[in-house]
Structures are given as C-alpha cells and as structure tokens.
C-alpha cells in the first residue's frame, strides 16, 4: 500500500521541486528580484503567528491529538530558516571569556605575527567559520601578519574559504594585501600533537613548503620566523582532537606563547579549566561565542545573524518539551481516572 503511494507521487514531486528551485536559482542569479528581507514589523507578526500555531498545537495535544514527528521537524526548520531573513536585532551581551580574548588581541602591536590554526572540517563550519571571518577582518585592519596552518586535513581549506570571502570585500580589496607578505597558508601536516612539538624546534621542519608548494624561505612573512618564539599570538579554531586541548598542553605549556581559541559548543565546556588557569587567554564558545566576538569587534556578520535562529530554535525545543509534558501529564491523569472507574 505504502509502496504504491511512493511510486505515484515521488517523481512528480521531485520534478516540481527541482523546477521551482531552478526558476528561483536563475532568477536570483540574474537578479530579477532582490534578497528576501522581512522588515521588523513583518518579522514580529510572523513570530506571533508561529507562537499562535504552537498554542494551537498545544490545544490539539490537550484534546488527545499529539503532533507527529514531521510536525516537530517542520517547526525546527521554520525556527531556523525564518530568522535568517529577519531584520530583527537582539541584544548580545559579551561574556568575560570573549572579552578577555578581545583584550589579548587588542594589546598586540601593528604588524604582530599571529599564528592562526584551523583544526576543523566542513561539518563544524557553521559555528567556527564566522569566528574565522571576524578574526581575519580584525587582523587585517590591525595590520597583523597572519600565518595559517591546520592539524586537520580540511582545516587549511576552511581558512582559504574564509580568506577569499573577507578579501573580496571592498574594504580589504583597497588594502591590496599580498599573499606571502601579509598572510600565508602553510597547509596541513599529519601527526597531531607531535606536529606542535616539532614546531617548537623549527616551523620549517614541519612545513618545508606552504599550501601551494612554495618553499618556506622564499615567503617574506615567515623568512624570519623560526619557531613559536617569533610568534606574538596564537588563535586556534577547533572542533575536537587534535585541537585546543593539544595546543594548550603541548604548545602553550612548553613553549609559552599566548593563545586564544574558538570552539564548538559541545567542546567548550571542557576548556574552562584552562581558562581559569590562564593557559588560555579567552575562548569563543559555539555560535553565541561567534556572535559575541562580532559584537565586541563591531564586525557584525553571520554569527550575529545566526544567533536569532539559534535563540528561536532553542525556544521551539523548549516549547515542544513543554507540550510533550503537558500531553504526558494529561494522558497519565486520564489513565488514572480510568483505573478508578474500573475499581
């Protein structure tokens, strides 16, 4: 029975979806219409509508018609997608750990050499990419020399994506920043924490060439960089192992450079001990960390924009937990009275 339904609708639906998106795609790329932007008023109305429909679901649940899985899925999608085009702003409070990280960056002089290490892959890009972009913007505006590397194979590619994006902005185009002079990407090296260990002796031993195969010594920015002692600050973005923990235990503890980090939310909780002991200068935790970093540096970007979706989705999850529990209590109560009748 289900099989028949599948074969009848699947293909037409697929074709319809593809055609519709093709039209939108072409139209948007030809700029037949502008970006979808919901004004503050419209956003509020939409939010009220969503809230109203949630109340309706609650009422239906009370009547004994709990929502199905797909309904929950739909709400999650709506809670995430709608805010992306909303023109609402919410007040973002900067937490002490983000503030500390910013202070650390602020204290650096013009032309400071900063080691940016990228230890994540596309899977965690949502949380860490906004941090990377803000970091590059800030670094280039302050005239830092940025040295990029990665302990994850995909890390340097993520760095390049963020770089391409930042450098295509008009503000940085006019600076005519040069590869090899203002920034360099050393690429990936396998060996996890042992790479950090050996970099303590000489960077060149781990990175004889940069990401593009250019010999280390022919790049002006790093010609005089022998090891960590020539680095003024290190910024690590990490999504797991190897990551911030290894950089702290092997790098900071042994070679004594200053380090700040950005982590995925799941990972952040494990980093607080290092923060308290001063081994880490500061930390950006997950999407909210990215938003706070944008807030304090005044480069409002994706982190801030995403934060609205983040808040929304949390509220939706909370509301569904409440609805689920209301239903549960009602159901239980119903059953209890039933029992009484039987007895």
């Amino acid at each position: 029975m289900e099989h028949g339904a599948k074969s009848r609708y699947e293909i037409p639906v697929l074709i319809a979806v593809v055609t519709l998106t093709l039209v939108i795609y072409v139209a948007r790329h030809a700029e037949w219409f502008g970006y979808l932007q919901l004004s503050a008023g419209l956003s509020l109305i939409l939010m009220l509508l969503v809230a109203g429909s949630l109340i309706w679901i609650l009422i239906r649940t009370l009547d004994g018609n709990p929502a199905g899985r797909r309904m929950v899925f739909l709400y999650v999608a709506v809670a995430v997608v709608l805010p992306l085009s909303m023109q609402l702003t919410q007040k973002i409070e900067v937490t002490p750990e983000v503030n500390q990280l910013y202070r650390g960056l602020q204290a650096l002089p013009h032309g400071a050499k900063v080691l940016a290490t990228f230890d994540y892959d596309p899977g965690s890009a949502a949380e860490l990419q906004p941090m990377a972009e803000t970091f590059f913007k800030y670094a280039f505006d302050r005239g830092f020399k940025v040295i990029i590397m990665g302990l994850w194979p995909q890390g340097p590619a993520q760095a390049n994506m963020a770089l391409t994006k930042v450098l295509s902005e008009e503000r940085y185009k006019v600076k005519s920043l040069r590869y090899g002079v203002d920034y360099v990407n050393l690429g990936f090296q396998s060996g996890n924490e042992f790479v950090i260990q050996r970099m303590g002796g000489e960077f060149k031993s781990m990175f004889p060439t940069d990401y593009n195969g250019t010999p280390y010594d022919s790049l002006p920015i790093i010609r005089n960089v022998k090891n960590f002692s020539n680095i003024d600050y290190s910024f690590n973005l990490s999504a797991g192992y190897p990551g911030t923990k290894e950089w702290v235990l092997v790098g900071v503890d042994q070679f004594g450079f200053k380090m700040g980090a950005g982590n995925t939310a799941v990972q952040t909780t494990g980093m607080y001990p290092y923060l308290r002991s001063g081994q880490l200068i500061g930390i950006l935790g997950g999407m909210s960390g990215a938003a706070e970093f944008e807030e304090i540096t005044k480069y409002r970007g994706k982190g801030t924009k995403f934060m609205l979706s983040q808040s929304f989705s949390h509220v939706v999850v909370v509301v569904f937990i409440i609805i689920g529990n209301v239903a549960y209590i009602m159901f239980e109560r119903g059953r209890a009275t039933e029992k009484k009748k039987k007895a």
């Binding site: 929502a67 899925f73 709400y75 999608a77 989705s313 999850v317 937990i321 689920g324 549960y328």
Partner: peptide, 13 residues
C-alpha cells in the same frame, strides 16, 4: 537538529 527536537518532544517526559 531535527532528531534532537523530536526526542525532546517525545522522550523528554
């Protein structure tokens, strides 16, 4: 993200 929400709704009692 979806499964986390549906688990919250279904199992978080």
């Amino acid at each position: 993200a979806f499964f986390v929400a549906s688990a919250s709704y279904r199992a978080f009692r």
